[in-house]
Design a protein around this nucleic acid. Structure first.
Lengths: 328, 328
DNA sequence: CTGTTAGCGCTTTCAG
DNA sequence: CTGAAAGCGCTAACAG
């Protein structure tokens, strides 16, 4: 069924070593025999056996990427660019989805290591020193994104603190004196890796600290929609609602609308992520765009750099910018 | 670095054959030696070398899935369920994205075959007998979806013809006497695999043939938005716009709105797919839901069944249903 | 119950 | 320039 180098060797009356020299055009072979071998190989439709090759070479030309969420569009966009970059360099990509299940995540990491992938990119939900150790002693390059795991592990993302500050400043510039920060993941503190939400939270607190005339609330409970509605309707002051992701912003917008709160007349809303589908929502959402495709591309690029033996930075930030919509 | 079965054998003073028996608990070994071996293996953190195993067993416990689009949410939803089902059975999944590039698709298929995946699921853009032959002689199970390739290749999807007919009937029942079918992919006829759009087109024509008092137009040109707007504004009759996917429906809705055509007052809109993000659009879109997660799950399940040597049906339809929104 | 041998398909020495 | 031999790590068949 499958043509092997051994068969080619026999047909050409040479040995496998010679066939190998021809196939991988290495020195030490006469042009005549090489041409003959290549011709036969081509006729038989020879294709090297990847596994055998990998086994002896110790590399699989395979990357693994671990995502905790694919329903949020930013991650499918991120994967898209990651995969494209990987392909350019001859890598194929295992995509595994953890659905924020911590045990599953660990299991998958073991699985990827077993299969000898050359590198792993991961948006982790695990955290702590034990998990850190698992990754550090994995023996292959690893790049993290969408949740930092360790100062020792390369991380590609945006500067969430600065971005959040910029958002608050933008809101203040629009004349709002009152702001609600909706950031539900915060309630998983201590349970799950929430590095990104925490950074945004810190940024929020810091900037608010410098703006004494800005009233603020943090909402992160499970029934955040109800909470937000209450806060909005109870207040005299026109309120801006900053959400830690577009998805939450859209949920909030929908809920307010269902309760006759007009956006942006009665309350302003701002999101975070700039996901593709925003094109279809009305009123258009003011949000923070960060080049998520760039993150995916960069993650793959760094991983491959590192696989090649080159050092890579422990921290890579991509840029962000505020996209003005009609919701604020 | 990596612990091998050979090392364990040496440490236990036995041979690799024996170690193998212990590790894969096969008969022909005393409880005493087995326990000893297992203990040592555990202490050393032994993990079998997947590649070596695959090489000798002739199976990689790996599946490949080829998608032409990940930005359309239905495909990320589909992948999600596919991957979950694969994992249940111990398979990891290569996800490759073709972006509807036909050459890339073929290249990727070769790549997957080289790497000896145990099976492939594919949403193809290629078509024709040459491509069919490539897949048929691949030597591994292949399942297709979101575009049929050949009557000889298992296909999992919905009955697009029936679904489209149901949509038209639904529209007629709502009292519409005029309908525009927006189906842009149709213009790639002969260039790309457009099995699904064609089925929907056929279904549309068939049902319209049975409804003489229903006026209809087909729109599939590149500037379909402009065309639709013209048709809608020129007509006295209130028009329903059926779109071959939710994405087109959302685009149309946006365009109409921008030109002061009110939905559903001035024109009705109906989509196809029931993608997740519809939750956030207003007015809510009437559409056809088909269990895309079920398709992904089923595709993986069938693939694995087939890998195990069991026959699988050449055609598997999942159910669909009309989801009523406010847009019609 | 355990050891020996051969082999998966390819690469890489080291001789000749 | 080419052949022979060893090895990647594991499995499997056959002896003993």
């Amino acid at each position: 069924m499958q043509v092997t180098s051994k068969q080619i060797a026999e047909m050409c009356g040479v040995t496998r070593g010679t066939v190998d020299r021809a196939l991988n055009n290495r020195p030490g072979i006469s042009a005549a025999t090489r041409d003959k071998i290549l011709k036969v190989a081509d006729e038989l439709g020879y294709r090297p056996h990847f596994l055998a090759q990998s086994l002896v070479k110790g590399e699989t030309k395979t990357l693994g990427i671990v995502l905790f969420d694919i329903h949020n569009q930013i991650f499918s966009q991120l994967f898209h660019s990651f995969e494209a970059e990987a392909r350019k360099h001859g890598y194929l990509t295992y995509l595994v989805l953890t659905n924020k299940d911590q045990e599953l995540e660990v299991e998958y990491i073991h699985n990827l290591l077993n299969r000898k992938v050359d590198g792993i990119a991961i948006s982790a939900v695990n955290f702590g020193s034990k998990f850190e150790a698992l990754l550090l002693k994995a023996g292959i390059p690893i790049v993290s994104f969408a949740n930092r795991i360790s100062a020792k592990l390369p991380y590609v993302w945006i500067d969430d603190k600065q971005a959040t500050k910029a958002a608050v400043r933008h809101i203040a510039d629009k004349g709002y004196r009152r702001i609600i920060f909706v950031i539900p993941p915060l309630r998983y503190k201590g349970t799950s890796n929430i590095y990104v939400p925490e950074q945004r939270y810190k940024g929020f607190l810091e900037i608010c600290g410098t703006m004494p005339d800005l009233q603020y609330d943090i909402v992160s409970d499970r029934s955040y929609l109800t909470s937000v509605l209450q806060l909005v309707t109870q207040s005299q002051e026109r309120t801006a609602i900053l959400c830690s992701s577009d998805i939450y912003a859209l949920e909030v917008a929908r809920h307010l609308k269902a309760h006759q709160v007009k956006v942006p007349e009665d309350a302003g809303i701002m999101g975070f992520d700039h996901i593709d589908v925003l094109r279809f929502v009305d009123p258009s959402l003011t949000t923070i765009d960060f080049q998520v495709e760039e993150i995916g591309r960069k993650a793959a690029e760094l991983l491959i750099e590192n696989i090649r033996g080159n050092d890579i930075p422990l921290r890579t930030n991509v840029t962000y910018s505020i996209v003005e919509g009609e919701s604020l």
